[in-house]
């Protein structure tokens, strides 16, 4: 890549214009030098696609919580970009336990202490956690 070929496709997706990343490119004397870039179309397409997938999944889960198929834990887990192993580590439970807590019936019976752990992991209040989707 030559210096004048370094793409400058800024689009400020989710604040990405905050950083002008450094890439390495070859100048006219054939010497490598660092060049700041606002971004590249191909790369930001991949970034946006990954986020769109997260948001699609999240919408689907939100619907399932509203329909009473899943508990709010499933929603907040995805909202915080976590997966099951990561959430289980955060709350200090086994994965099967967390999975169980995603059933609305089980969730409704959870003790305050456990709810607090989940709320802390998601950085929300217990109230927000409990009332989501109601």
């Amino acid at each position: 890549m030559k210096v004048n070929e370094v793409p400058q496709d800024g689009n400020n997706f989710k604040g990405s214009d905050k950083v002008k990343k450094l890439v390495y490119a070859v100048d006219k004397d054939g010497k490598y030098t660092g060049v700041n870039t606002k971004g590249w179309e191909a790369e930001s397409f991949a970034t946006q696609q990954a986020w769109a997938a997260v948001e699609e999944d999240l919408k689907e889960t939100e619907q399932q919580v509203k329909e009473g198929v899943l508990s709010p834990i499933a929603y907040f887990m995805q909202k915080c970009l976590m997966d099951l192993p990561l959430l289980a580590k955060h709350v200090g439970k086994w994965q099967w336990q967390v999975k169980r807590h995603m059933k609305p019936l089980v969730f409704n019976g959870l003790p305050a202490k456990t709810l607090q752990k989940y709320a802390d992991a998601f950085e929300v209040s217990v109230e927000e956690l409990k009332s989501f989707g109601k």
């Binding site: 890549m1 370094v6 990343k21 450094l22 890439v23 390495y24 490119a25 490598y32 590249w40 191909a42 790369e43 397409f45 991949a46 970034t47 696609q49 990954a50």
Partner: peptide
């Protein structure tokens, strides 16, 4: 595919997955 591109370009690699 998108994930390969992100590992190659998005995550501070200096371009072309650290090749440059």
């Amino acid at each position: 595919l998108g994930n390969i591109i992100r590992m190659q370009e998005e995550i501070g690699t200096g371009g072309a997955g650290f090749r440059f």
